[in-house]
Design a protein around this nucleic acid. Structure first.
Length: 695
RNA sequence: GGACGAUUAGCUCAGUGGUAGAGCGCUGCAUUCACAUUGCAGAUGUCGCAGGUUCAAAUCCUGCAUCGUCCACCA
């Protein structure tokens, strides 16, 4: 054996041995309760980042349960990541001076498909480099036909039961990316913008968006506001930029008398509050901003201008015509922006598919409150219930090509929608006419990933070999969902809602949240900041075991952590310590002489085994790793090995102790422990990964 | 405006009722001893602040401060 542990010589070889040996596949035993984790599917076309390495917690659980004898499945997958991927692909197109509009839909789809599949293997090999014991024979892609069919079936059932409906309302629309979003994809940022006090008939009113004035259909005041009470219900005459026009005054509680002058213009097509006011007062809608982010014909000479330019021109013209009273230049407010590209989100009126959330969320909340799903750490239970209580109906339509096209066809005669489980209908379900046109939109990616736990396990449904068709019945509900807390509303809550709806059972019995990884200064890692640490580089330099151990050591569940290379180096040293302790033990000649401290040693070893096991069962991997590190280094190595040199501990007992440590440490540091286990004298030929946990 | 988290050794963080902990760093000593990716010895903290509960509080309660995160339609 070499004097130092060299991870490069070991990791590839060991992983191939595991994979070839089929050790990642569960041994199904109907009499035993399985342990199941579904890996949160990384984007198929993107490299892993350090955050993905936190899934090591799932590998720790998986390896532990495999060793205690549970039929254990950790199922891998890849996400087509609709919007994210199309966004990246469009950037690639832009480099070649092309855009998505240069290609027919099916050609574009094919191009993105190829793009994704060229990159897909990369991510999967990175998961292997981390040592993840995923059952690759069950690998699933979100666009696999069986998954698509499952998602379509759910959509149809939701539609048939009135839980999905077509609605025309204001949508969060990014005019740059050309798609609408759900509320969650909107990022609110604080910003300073001029607040224009403009003359509006008999009033002066404040607005940051004078360019939308062509879409005004009323003026609103608070009904309790004494200053304006007499105007409510009356019509006012306003000198506009285009012409003189008449405008109704309505009283509405949404108006805050203390803001501005207490008078607001109502632009129902471009403001959520105004839209609500319009609904209450039956006001017409006038769309002045188009989906291209330019003003429509309603804006007369300003038509065709982009919003920003239009605002400047409108303000300029109003200034020269004395229509602006004054401008508050120090006004700060929050603006809705696209979470991806930062463009200001325009609320625009658009017909979309919505999931009625209330009935689904009620079920989900009930399941959490009744402890059908345990939440680790506990504090996130409150977050989840808050989210479930506050969710608005979910817009699942996206104006994208990359994704599952919505299986809904609109009748050209009666305008009714026919929804199927994917097959093209030959007639309208209402009027039976045959001229139908499919919705051009695709599903929000989260609508499909929200069904991931059962969609993955149902993947075969009798179509493939037998052992897989029974997966759903055997492995569902899954044991643990382990993910970063930042996708709690996007993903976890939706999985619970859709899981309960479709399967009548929770999708997982426990949800464990890990924190985010930040750089050594505590800042969020991002490509633009240039502080991203590549997990592969760290693995190359320190070994996968060291990286893995440093991610769980000293990290409480749900807390963010700053990663530092110093820490990883320290854990590499620990792997090396393990290596050398094992080297020492293997160098010993076997003998049967008893040592006077043997009993005491065994007792302490038992205590450690018991403690670590109990920590594992309680999801306290941090405590387990610390106890193992501390006791192995400073007790087993510093004291026991020294005692063994003096004959106080027998060599047999020392050897047994080491075997226990290799087993206990295996979930955390699978490579070095496996390598050493197989080097131990008297190894019986069974790999450590499928050996039994010490008791 | 609301919610949540953090505040503990120089740095990064564990610890949730019973005499303050780890990693890294620091100081001194040790080198043909399994390991210098090492060993031995050592220093360092009124556990954010102020009250309260308790025989006992870093830990529970109340209030405050600072930092951070998420949410929220003030035009």
């Amino acid at each position: 054996m070499d004097k130092a542990y060299d991870s490069k010589l070991v990791e590839g070889k060991i992983y191939r041995m595991w994979e070839k040996g089929g050790y990642f596949k569960p041994k199904i035993d109907k009499k035993k309760k399985p342990f199941t984790i579904i890996l949160p599917p990384p984007n198929a076309n993107a490299d892993l980042h350090l955050g993905h390495a936190m899934y090591v917690i799932e590998d720790i659980m998986t390896r532990y349960h495999r060793m205690i004898g549970d039929p254990t499945l950790w199922l891998p997958g890849a996400d087509h990541a609709g919007f994210e991927t199309q966004y990246v692909f469009e950037k690639e197109l832009a480099k070649k001076d092309k855009s998505r509009f240069d290609f027919p839909r099916d050609v574009l789809y094919k191009m993105i498909w190829d793009f994704v599949h060229e990159n897909r293997g990369k991510m999967e090999n990175q998961l292997r480099r981390l040592g993840f014991s995923l059952d690759w024979s069950r690998n699933v892609f979100t666009l696999d036909q069986t998954v698509v069919t499952t998602v379509y079936t759910t959509f149809k059932r939701l539609f048939d039961e009135g839980l999905v409906y077509r609605g025309l309302r204001l949508v969060n629309y990014c005019t740059k990316d050309g798609t609408g979003f759900s509320d969650l994809e909107v990022k609110h940022v604080e910003r300073a913008d001029p607040l224009y006090y403009m003359k509006y008939g008999p009033f002066i009113l404040a607005t940051v968006r004078p360019e939308t004035k062509f879409g005004d259909t009323a003026v609103a005041v608070n009904p309790k506001d004494k200053r304006y009470k007499k105007w409510i219900g009356k019509e006012i005459e306003v000198e506009g930029l285009l012409r003189k026009f008449k405008m109704k005054v309505v009283g509405d509680d949404a108006i805050d008398p203390s803001f501005g002058t207490g008078v607001a213009k109502v632009t129902p097509s471009h403001d959520f509050t105004d839209y609500e006011i319009a609904k209450r007062h039956n006001l017409p809608m006038k769309q002045v901003i188009g989906f291209d982010g330019r003003l429509t014909d309603i804006a007369g000479p300003y038509a065709g201008l982009k919003v920003k330019t239009a605002r400047e021109k409108v303000v300029e013209e109003m200034k020269t015509r004395g229509m602006i009273d004054h401008i508050d230049e120090n006004y700060t407010h929050t603006v809705a922006t696209c979470y991806k590209c930062g463009t200001v989100i325009e609320p625009l009126p658009l017909e979309q598919w919505y999931v009625k959330i209330k009935p689904l969320a009620t079920q989900a909340t009930k399941a959490i409150k009744e402890k059908k799903i345990a939440v680790v750490p506990r504090r996130f239970e409150k977050h989840m219930i808050q989210w479930l209580t506050n969710f608005a109906d979910w817009n699942i339509s996206r104006q994208l090509v990359w994704g599952m096209r919505i299986p809904a066809w609109k009748c050209q005669s009666c305008n009714e929608w026919t929804v199927t489980e994917g097959e093209e209908p030959n007639q309208c379900s209402k009027c039976h006419k045959t001229k139908l046109q499919q919705d051009t939109d695709t599903f929000d990616t989260w609508f499909s990933s929200g069904q991931w736990p059962f969609a993955t396990l149902r993947v075969a449904q009798g179509k493939l070999s037998d052992f897989r068709s029974n997966d759903f019945n055997y492995f569902y509900p899954t044991s643990v969902m382990e993910t970063a807390y930042d996708i709690l509303p996007w993903w976890v809550c939706r999985m619970i809602m859709l899981g309960l709806y479709v399967t009548n059972d929770v999708p997982f019995r426990t949800v464990y949240y890990h924190g985010l990884i930040r750089d050594s200064k505590g800042q969020k890692m991002s490509k633009s900041k240039g502080n991203v640490l590549n997990p592969l580089r760290l693995i190359d330099q320190y070994g996968a075991d060291a990286l893995r151990f440093s991610l769980v050591f000293g990290t409480a569940a749900g807390n963010d952590q700053s990663i530092s290379e110093d820490k990883i180096r320290g854990m590499r040293n620990f792997a090396n310590k393990l290596w050398n302790a094992a080297r020492f033990v293997t160098l010993l000649q076997s003998e049967t002489k008893k040592g006077q401290q043997d009993i005491t040693f065994k007792k302490e070893m038992d205590r450690i085994i018991h403690k670590v096991t109990s920590y594992m069962d309680k999801f306290n991997f941090n405590a387990a790793s610390e106890l193992l590190y501390e006791s192995f280094w400073h007790w087993y190595c510093d004291q026991i090995i020294e005692q063994a040199k003096n004959g106080k501990i027998s060599k047999t007992v020392l050897h047994e102790g080491l075997l226990s440590y290799l087993k206990l440490l295996h979930p955390f540091m699978p490579f070095v422990t496996e390598e050493l286990y197989q080097k131990m004298p008297g190894w019986n030929g069974t790999p450590l990964i499928v050996s039994s946990w010490p008791v």
